[in-house]
């Protein structure tokens, strides 16, 4: 993310959506690494120098790119021009993203928020959001390092505008390994069939 305060979720910040890679062929096509569902959904993408680009997919990861100059699209037409765009990072303004549904949050909004516990003590900052198919979880680093499930019970309050979340840290219960696993496991499993 670029051009944003430490609370990266503040509206008006820009979100990194992709990077232009090497040219493809001699007609100005480029390879683009996309971090978005569909980069062409956005009206235009901007780079670090505030240039605006319009992108159209022409194949798997290959795009035709045009620069917006005074509202007119100037197509990148040859390989030499495309080579000048290698490693250009493409951003969209946060305001361009569609509104998320209720209880849905953009990862870009969540990362960087300051976490407080229910008594108001600061825990740290959200550094990552994990989701591997078993529900999202927030990784908090700082005074307290923790990974908490992104549930109403554990994260009762998310206030993106003020850059803070309230976290009710769950109780950690350690399941010991005092019993023999193999035969014990089979026996238990059979009795539960």
């Amino acid at each position: 993310m670029a051009g944003s305060s430490p609370a990266t979720g503040v509206p008006g910040s820009r979100i990194l959506m992709g990077v232009i890679g090497r040219p493809h062929g001699v007609r100005g096509l480029v390879r683009v690494t996309s971090y978005a569902d569909d980069l062409t959904r956005y009206r235009w993408l901007s780079d670090d120098r505030e240039r605006r680009f319009v992108l159209r997919w022409r194949g798997e990861g290959i795009a035709e790119i045009a620069e917006l100059i005074d509202g007119n699209e100037v197509k990148v037409a040859d390989r030499t021009a495309a080579e000048k765009l290698i490693n250009v990072r493409l951003y969209v303004d946060r305001a361009q993203l569609p509104e998320p549904e209720e209880d849905e949050f953009y990862l870009a909004d969540l990362i960087g928020l300051v976490a407080f516990d229910t008594s108001g003590a600061q825990l740290g900052r959200i550094t990552a959001v994990h989701d591997y198919g078993a529900g999202a979880s927030l990784e908090i680093a700082g005074e307290t390092s923790a990974i908490v499930p992104f549930t109403r019970a554990c994260v009762p309050e998310v206030d993106i505008a003020s850059g803070r979340v309230t976290v009710a840290l769950p109780v950690d219960v350690t399941a010991g390994t005092s019993q023999v696993a193999g035969s014990e496991g089979r026996a238990v499993a059979r009795s539960h069939r």
Partner: peptide, 12 residues
């Protein structure tokens, strides 16, 4: 973890 991009997380 990659880049956040326009990915969303749902609070359950």
């Amino acid at each position: 973890t990659g880049h956040a991009g326009d990915k969303r997380a749902r609070r359950t």
